[in-house]
Design a protein around this nucleic acid. Sequence first.
DNA 1: CAGGTGAATATGTGCAGACATAATAAACTT
DNA 2: AAGTTTATTATGTCTGCACATATTCACCTG
Lengths: 230, 230
Amino acid sequence: MRQKSYQDIRALVLARIHAQIWPPGARIPGEADLAAEFGCARATVNRALRELAEAGLIERRRKAGTRVAVNPVRKATLELPVVRLEVEGRGETYDHKLLLRETETPPDHVRARMNLPAGVRLLHLKTLHMADACPYMFEDRWLNRRTATGIDAADLNRISANEWLVQNVPFSGGDIAFFAAAASGDEAGALNIAPETAIFVVERTTWRGLDPVTATRLAYAPGYRMTTRI
Amino acid sequence: MRQKSYQDIRALVLARIHAQIWPPGARIPGEADLAAEFGCARATVNRALRELAEAGLIERRRKAGTRVAVNPVRKATLELPVVRLEVEGRGETYDHKLLLRETETPPDHVRARMNLPAGVRLLHLKTLHMADACPYMFEDRWLNRRTATGIDAADLNRISANEWLVQNVPFSGGDIAFFAAAASGDEAGALNIAPETAIFVVERTTWRGLDPVTATRLAYAPGYRMTTRI
DNA sequence: CAGGTGAATATGTGCAGACATAATAAACTT
DNA sequence: AAGTTTATTATGTCTGCACATATTCACCTG
């Protein structure tokens, strides 16, 4: 290891933390010191430490220095791909059925989530996503035509609303919630399971600036596991 | 905005993507060009674009250049703090009860998750975590004494195993799964709910190098929502 | 025309130096 | 002694330059 990369430095620092040479809470040498010790530029040390800080393993503050995190808040990154790619990524064939497409007045909890005034009418979609011809996920979506312009011209039997949106309506942010619920009659019927079965639910609201784009409730068929590594 | 920071550049590029000046799939100018246009160093542009790439909004390849992602795989980062901090962070008072502490032979599925040979005996812990004196989460944990050395000396009535581990056994990685399940008798009893109620479950296995440290199943009380923003 | 080869090019990373900024510690004042 | 100002210091970031590396594309060759 003649020339040291920032990844090498990161690994070296991580090793010392794991070996408890620098135990939790301890202050580690400054960037300049480490650069001198490892024989590289301070910028290189900086990048290594910055990444470790982003991962929650160390805490950095100006003047105060860098210390090993006492309660390392592990950050898990979940990838939220388009459903089709998620299914195809596992080698299964994807398909979807549009079950409902109506303009309706949304229930209050949806209206509240989207921060819209009373009386608005939204496009309501219900879609069943399938993997290898088996029910995979039931999607209940409310769409704001003001931000999702062009949705009425889309052929949602060919391309799912999910996919149409990511490709056509760039959004700036969103809220996501994951929880467990007992399957509603609607969901049980679509997924072909008994009502009240425990299912994994994802609720997502996306925004374009301050304007809501869409609010969705994704009900996954029993057995679904969302996984990641840290 | 006399001097431009990498955050400014990032925002400028993001704005062009949102405004569809650079639509999905389009190739954007090279770093050198952008640096010239924005009047900053290439390194600054590089950092801005690197962060956007990490967020999944653009895709970069050497020689091929940078293009706007067609299917932006949104990455949600979940913070997984120690239970106590999660509860206290919401202004509730935390408490926990150690319900079981035995050395036992783990069931096969646990043994498989931890990649351990048949016949091993592990420390088995059951803990009920509470928020404002109400059952909050039931934790079923199996611990490997080889990696979690010192656990037998810990006073797990004062500090939860969860917290003892993060502070004493640095781990190098782990697998996490989130899913919904019907509450088992054990879980229903501890959480004081009806059996078969839909609950949110997190299963985590952590490793130190190639050696397993612990395998846990966290069963959250009904109503629990794991949330984040993207 | 198939297939290999090498030049061209965009990103990836390293370095040294400089200044900016935040937070602490020390000095000073009232 | 308490509060305020000032100096110090470690991290944060920018610049300009250099070289590394992965691809692509054009070209050559059989």
